[in-house]
Computed example of a mutant assay.
Amino acid sequence: MTTFPGSARVEWVMGMPVSVDIRTALPERELTPVLDDAFSWLRWVADTFDPDNEDSQIARLNSGRTIRQVPELVEVLHRCDEISRATNGWFEARVDGVTDPSGYIKGWALERLSRGLCNAGAVDHRIVAGGDIRVRGSAMPGKPWRTAVRDPRTGVVRAVVHAHDLGISTSGRRPVVDPHTGKVQEDVGSVTVIGPDLGLTDAYATALFAMGPARARRFAVDLAAEGPYETMIITRNGQEISTPGFARRSGAADRLAV
């Protein structure tokens, strides 16, 4: 068995197991505090943004109580507003007067963590939390990370993405509500979005799922035409439909017409 340099850790945070796998050849005395700081950051995010925690800043905001001047809170709410406009309201962090940035916050937190790891010298890493994955650098010298994209309903591998620097988000593990009707969207199996910013892939995957299959296909085509974000949609009957850039990275068979 080949042993790679680096270190890995899994902790339960943000309501799920989160794994940080560092492959950069750093001494243990440097990696241990890096991993300590990584999970301290994630716990801070959970404490600040969890709407179900009555002492979080989001819960205090929703109940009209005084909140602290937290720059990250302003940043997240501003970005959520931008994404809402970009998706014509299909991603919405404010519904009926209640603020809940859950569709963005996990991806945002992991993206910030990934940048922090790079700044600490741990440039080769993979972070996994539920349907969000952030890879940077190499899994081993000269080799990209190989990441399986699984159907959240069945666990079947639908694609394998090869990348040195990519965010990958899959929506469909939990119910997604149509923000326009308040009803759970049930016509889509899952949506996976890949791109350079995990916060945006997370939010786009949520929005596309909420749209339903027909509208999601059109939006995915436009999204790919405008920039670096590519999509794979799995319909309720199991059909895989991908934008060309996603198919090139993973070998997915069916492509959306452009």
Rank of each mutant, 00 (worst) to 15 (best):
F4S: 08
S7Y: 14
R9Q: 15
V10P: 00
V13N: 01
M16Y: 10
M16I: 12
M16D: 04
R23V: 00
T24R: 03
A25W: 01
P27C: 10
T32K: 15
F39S: 05
L42T: 05
A46E: 10
D47H: 15
D47E: 13
P51F: 02
D55E: 11
S56W: 04
Q57V: 12
I58W: 09
L61D: 04
G64D: 06
R65K: 14
T66F: 09
V74I: 13
V74Y: 09
L77M: 11
L77D: 03
C80G: 03
D81L: 15
D81E: 13
I83M: 09
A86K: 11
T87L: 06
T87P: 01
N88S: 15
G89D: 02
F91G: 00
E92M: 15
A93Y: 07
V95E: 03
D96I: 11
V98I: 13
V98M: 10
T99P: 03
T99D: 02
P101L: 10
S102R: 05
S102T: 13
Y104S: 09
I105W: 04
W108D: 06
L110T: 03
E111H: 14
E111C: 01
R112N: 09
L113R: 05
S114Q: 01
A122R: 06
A122N: 08
A122H: 06
V123R: 11
R126I: 13
I127L: 09
A129V: 07
G131T: 05
R134Y: 05
R136W: 01
M140Y: 14
W145K: 08
R146G: 11
T147Q: 10
R150D: 02
D151K: 06
D151L: 04
D151H: 04
D151F: 04
R153T: 13
A159S: 08
A159G: 03
V160E: 08
H162Q: 12
A163F: 07
D165P: 06
I168G: 03
S171K: 09
S171Q: 08
R174G: 08
P175M: 08
G182P: 00
G182T: 05
V184K: 09
Q185C: 12
D187I: 09
S190F: 09
S190A: 13
T192M: 05
G195Y: 05
P196L: 11
L198D: 01
G199F: 03
A203P: 06
A210C: 04
M211N: 07
G212D: 02
P213F: 00
A224H: 02
E230P: 05
E230Q: 13
I234Q: 14
N237K: 14
Q239M: 12
Q239P: 04
E240S: 13
I241Y: 03
S242V: 08
T243W: 00
G245R: 02
G245I: 02
F246H: 02
A247V: 08
S250L: 08
A252P: 04
L256Q: 06
